[in-house]
Write a protein that binds this DNA or RNA. Structure first.
Lengths: 222, 222
DNA sequence: GACAACCTGACACCGACCTGACACGGCCCA
DNA sequence: TGGGCCGTGTCAGGTCGGTGTCAGGTTGTC
């Protein structure tokens, strides 16, 4: 597979591309939009990894142009920002998925595989399982048709859990993914958010199980 | 397996490496970045355990160089508890996992196994043998379809035994793995846990055999 | 038969976890 | 600028379950 990585942070770019190469992929690296455009013209890529904030513009304008020119290469957005608002729009513009930094590589790889698997279809980030419909991009959830608006933190917590149902997440791990560098919250904060999220999921078939001393796990309750 | 341990705290290094050697691994110890670099040049390692704060620099610069030189040896970061930013940054730089100090050895071993498993490209954490399905990642087990939730200690004990069926573990060895240094439990605790685990395995084809004076062994009772 | 090793039901302790209440700060609007 | 609203994280008090110990019984070995 041939990937195009559009990312201005050199360190991160090296890390990602060396990792991808290990999997046998070919990776081209463009540090800005201009180079990215040049690459796209010349090469035929199977997947594009696109940073949003780039030195010479917004990744989304690139995405828009790309889609307008009728190219169907799948695009995964890399965004540093955790706020939902930043994601809105990118999927409408034709991105196939997004990953928020910091991400771990296992996750990125998984997303890449997933996107390429469903290469034919259109974006499919809305999850409809266990009696709930969850749209992480819109920050919206419906439990058996009843609409529920999640707040930012709850949303991201649910997103983490629902993307790996059945897997145990330690509080430590959840905290790392939920909070950014500078603000370190106590582990109690996680407990609180789990509690709040549980309340939202009350009438659904999703259940968050506590494994004492281990962490939390999302289960489908049927 | 051949490990490189980069860690300046001599005590910790000794503890870790002696533990690893018990499992039959070869461990080389580098107390600083310079030695580590020398080791990497000469030897071919299966896994690197890397401390972040070292006398002659930051472990991450080492990691960065390492990745830049296109080496695919898995790296697990050892980091002090408080520094969230350290951990996250290192994942971006291409670390495969991190463990926060103080860690217990059972956890470190589990992480090592997981990382190496992932590396080999065999995401097979689920063990399906002898009438049971055991998923250490989900903290879950099923005996002939009947679901059983294991507690923390039971889980780790089973994980130890099931990864080396037919091998005899002395009570001392099991205690070393299950408990960390500071909390020393009596050997009777092991007997209790063996008993509890046996109860869980009752209907399966797995059996824990007692070898009087020697220890315990997990057998497939086909 | 004596002794040690092991098993097991019962139990008390402690810490992980839950939760309602609250304080703080950012944001919007007047 | 000030006030109200909302999202967020902390805290304290309470609950509860995992955990290790103990005592008494059982099994194996010399």
């Amino acid at each position: 597979m041939k990937f195009l990585l559009v990312e201005d942070n050199q360190e991160l770019a090296n890390a990602v591309s060396s990792r991808m190469r290990l999997d046998g992929h070919v990776v081209e690296h463009a540090p800005n939009l201009e180079d990215a455009a040049a690459f796209v013209e010349t090469g035929d890529f199977d997947l594009i990894l696109l940073d949003i904030s780039l030195p010479d513009g917004d990744g989304r304008t690139f995405l828009k142009k790309h889609r307008a020119s009728d190219l169907d290469t799948p695009v995964i957005i890399l965004t540093a920002r955790s706020q939902v608002s930043d994601r809105i729009g990118s999927l409408d513009l034709g991105a196939d998925d997004y990953v928020t930094k910091p991400f771990d590589h296992a996750e990125l790889e998984a997303r890449c595989r997933a996107v390429m698997r469903r290469k034919v279809g259109r974006p499919q980030t809305v999850i409809d399982k266990g009696g709930i419909v969850f749209d992480p991009v819109a920050g919206h959830m419906a439990v058996h048709g009843r609409s529920v608006t999640l707040r930012n933190r709850e949303l991201r917590l649910l997103e983490l859990l629902i993307n790996a149902p059945g897997q145990v997440f330690s509080k430590q791990k959840l905290a790392d993914r939920l909070f950014s560098y500078d603000d370190d919250a106590s582990e109690n904060a996680i407990e609180v958010y789990i509690g709040r999220l549980r309340k939202h999921l009350e009438d659904s078939d999703l259940k968050i199980t506590t494994l004492r001393g281990l962490g939390y796990r999302l289960d489908y309750d049927t």
